[in-house]
């Protein structure tokens, strides 16, 4: 029997999920200076400290960049915001996953990270009773892996993740669970904060202009569902444009203009 209560997800706003990430990318203080690996960011190591994406050289006289990215100075930290890279799971992230394998004990999920995620059946059902209660409930059997099939698209939360072990996932929580409709597209994970925009400005604009539901996740996958296929196509084109121009200035206004123009050209309103 299908469990309806936690699968009828309300597609409401999701922009408050990724509050901390936004400030890193969409700040006014970011210089639009592109740096490459090995480039010296500063030789003034007394006043500046190496932040994200940077490292001190061996004799601690220079701060050098590790990634191809944008140089950013935040107080006395020098950061490099990468323009390209891969997703590293962190506890608490909500990600879109694809069931690739299952056995009676666990599911394996592709979460676009270097390791496959593990979803145990105990993390797919809500625990109603307190632990240790022996009331002899009728459904006291251990949960099995019958709930999802190979090929299903799930929205999951990362419970634990580190460098050595496979990340553990859960489908219990708000917005989490199986998606039955919509389209999932994939972009480069470091560009995700730009699709969300500062305080969710970009995603709100996209939702209003294309009358669509969007769910953006940190692993570079975006779930979307519009009123009809024309809106969905327009939205995908707009997101691809954001990905390409993520490091330019005044992106939100430009995308808004682009969508208005494209609506006229494509004859949708």
């Amino acid at each position: 029997m299908e469990n309806e209560e936690d699968e009828s997800i309300e597609e409401t706003t999701t922009d408050n999920d990724e509050g901390e990430e936004i400030a890193e990318f969409d700040g006014e203080e970011i210089s639009r200076e592109v740096v490459v690996p090995g480039e010296v960011l500063t030789e003034d190591t007394k006043n500046f400290l190496p932040g994200r994406g940077t490292i001190l050289n061996k004799d601690r006289t220079k701060i050098i960049s590790l990634n191809i990215g944008l140089k950013q100075i935040n107080k006395n930290y020098i950061n490099v915001i990468p323009l390209k890279g891969f997703y590293t799971p962190r506890a608490g992230d909500k990600v879109i996953a694809l069931v690739t394998d299952k056995n009676p004990v666990k599911y394996r999920l592709d979460i676009n990270a270097k390791d496959e995620g593990i979803l145990k059946p105990k993390n797919t059902v809500k625990r109603n009773r307190t632990r240790g209660f022996r009331g002899g409930g009728s459904d006291s059997a251990a949960p099995s892996t019958d709930k999802y099939q190979i090929g299903d698209i799930l929205i999951v939360k990362v419970l634990s993740a580190d460098r050595l072990n496979q990340p553990e996932l859960t489908t219990v929580g708000q917005y989490l669970g199986k998606r039955r409709d919509g389209i999932v597209i994939s972009i480069n994970p470091p560009k995700i904060p730009r699709v969300i925009g500062r305080n969710g400005s970009m995603i709100k604009m996209l939702k209003n202009l294309t009358k669509s539901n969007i769910f953006v996740t940190q692993n570079g996958r975006i779930w979307l569902k519009g009123e009809n296929i024309a809106y969905e196509r327009l939205l995908i084109d707009a997101i691809k444009k954001i990905e390409r121009e993520a490091h330019t200035v005044g992106l939100t206004d430009r995308i808004s203009e682009y969508i208005d123009n494209e609506k006229k050209i494509r004859g949708i309103n």
Partner: peptide
């Protein structure tokens, strides 16, 4: 390697 976004000490 740099284009792939792999963290590198230099080229």
């Amino acid at each position: 390697l740099a284009d792939a976004g792999v963290p590198m000490r230099s080229l």
